[in-house]
């Protein structure tokens, strides 16, 4: 994703475990989840967001599209939260690791590129350069 045009073509899939159900998310809720402001699903289960590592190109794209904050702005935000004992989501180094974590951890949510999705997880949303596309049952969005 060295070129801006390439980044625009990337579609991000927001994923949960394949047995999770009933989550109705929009982009604002997704931002609150990854900023640890929303911590429970509607069934009261605790949400476990998982990030890709800060060096991963998809991480920056996710932050831009969902959180609207630059990396150093996020650092300052997390400093304030740390003062109250609140930490950023854990991060993993690869999309495969994110998918494995989400598949194996109840209540978890993560993101990977849409083309990397397989049957272990379920897609809640697709994030494109132009906005959010809600995923239909069994849909696959891999441009």
């Amino acid at each position: 994703m060295a070129c801006p045009a390439c980044a625009e073509q990337v579609v991000i899939a927001v994923i949960v475990g394949k047995n999770e159900h009933g989550y109705n998310l929009d982009k604002a809720s997704l931002a609150r989840i990854f900023l640890r402001k929303m911590n429970h699903w509607s069934n009261r289960q605790i949400i476990q967001p998982i990030n890709l590592s800060t060096a991963h190109p998809l991480r920056r794209l996710f932050s831009e599209r969902v959180l609207g904050l630059e990396p150093d702005e996020l650092d300052e935000f997390w400093n304030d939260q740390y003062f109250h004992g609140i930490f950023p989501p854990y991060s993993v180094v690869s999309e495969e690791a994110a998918m494995r974590f989400v598949a194996e951890s109840p209540g978890s949510i993560g993101y990977i590129s849409a083309c990397a999705v397989d049957g272990r997880v379920k897609v809640l949303l697709y994030l494109t350069a132009s906005g959010v596309v809600r995923a239909g049952e069994g849909s696959r969005y891999c441009p």
Binding site: N51, S53, T54, D75, W78, S91
Partner: peptide
């Protein structure tokens, strides 16, 4: 330094030791 990973003990300046 990387933020909190899922590994065991983890320290980062400004994020403490988990």
């Amino acid at each position: 330094a990387e933020e909190g990973s899922t590994e065991a003990w983890h320290y980062r300046l400004g994020q403490g030791l988990r």
